[in-house]
């Protein structure tokens, strides 16, 4: 895939995924018997998609996050994801400890922490084999 095509695909990925998730929310809410909530969720995701496209035109940072061309912005994004993942992991561990202390199994936090840990290890192995 050429760089310009890859850039375009990345650029449109954010609004496209927002639309896709919006439709998934709509379907889920409709199946759950709450079509109005589903419509609201879809509208919110459409607003997010539109906002990303508008901001992408005026903000270099937003455009960089979307099209992944700028190595510095991609690096900032990766560091922000690392930080957010670390906070999420601490929350999962804390919630697991609290649930266990209350005499419960710790689910679903134990499962989420396990998915997090196993995904990390699998990713590390794949990256290690490739690099």
């Amino acid at each position: 895939m050429s760089r310009s095509l890859r850039t375009r695909v990345y650029y449109w990925a954010t609004p496209a995924l927002s639309l896709l998730f919006g439709l998934a929310f709509l379907l889920a809410f409709m199946l759950g018997g709450h079509p109005v909530a589903g419509a609201i969720a879809l509208v919110l995701m459409l607003v997010l998609a539109a906002a990303s496209l508008v901001l992408g035109r005026y903000s270099e940072t937003m455009r960089g996050l979307m099209d992944r061309r700028d190595e510095r912005i991609v690096s900032l994004d990766q560091r922000a994801v690392n930080g957010a993942a670390m906070v999420l992991l601490l929350v999962l561990i804390g919630a697991t400890i609290e649930e266990v202390a209350r005499g419960r199994s710790g689910a679903p936090f134990t499962w989420l922490a396990a998915v997090f840990g196993l995904t990390y290890l699998a990713t590390l192995v794949v990256l290690r084999l490739r690099a």
Binding site: R3, E60, G64, R69, D70, E71, R72, I73
Partner: peptide, 17 residues
């Protein structure tokens, strides 16, 4: 093929390319 902010960050030494 980078942002203006990145060029500025390189120039002032905040970012190593």
């Amino acid at each position: 093929g980078v942002s203006r902010q990145t060029i500025n960050s390189i120039e002032v030494g905040r970012y190593t390319p």
